[in-house]
């Protein structure tokens, strides 16, 4: 799959890129906030987006809504330190395919990617 990674922390983008590449997928873009993710989604049309929630400029929930309204078939996995039930529900109700709570490991990322592929 062609994957767009979204996280405001360069360290986290590096970790995700490393794991996703090891799992045999291609990271085609990196976005550092929700606004950037929407722009890159429209340009790259990736098969999958990983989306942090707490980010400057535009948070991940609003970016998810924008991407789904642009492309209802978009596949987005949330990847956030905020794992409250309300937050997870809101993400799923807005079309997220999975919700990964940080910190994560390779197995959890692998499980999420298999689920959407």
């Amino acid at each position: 799959m062609r994957v767009l990674v979204t996280d405001d922390a360069a360290f986290m983008r590096m970790q995700l890129k490393d794991i996703i590449s090891k799992l045999g997928h291609e990271v085609v873009g990196e976005a550092e906030n929700g606004k950037d993710a929407i722009e890159q989604y429209k340009k790259l049309m990736p098969d999958l987006v990983t989306m942090d929630i707490t980010m400057p400029e535009l948070d991940g929930i609003n970016a998810l809504k924008e991407i789904k309204s642009f492309d209802p078939h978009a596949r987005v996995i949330m990847c956030s330190a905020m794992g409250q039930q309300g937050m997870v529900l809101e993400a799923i109700q807005n079309g997220a395919k999975d919700f990964i709570v940080k910190p994560f490991n390779q197995d959890r990322i692998s499980e999420a990617l298999e689920k959407v592929s």
């Binding site: 996280d7 922390a9 360290f11 986290m12 330190a81 905020m82 794992g83 940080k102 910190p103």
Partner: peptide, 10 residues
């Protein structure tokens, strides 16, 4: 920064 995010978020 990410450590702070993870600790506070959790």
């Amino acid at each position: 920064g990410e450590f702070g995010n993870m600790v506070s978020g959790n």
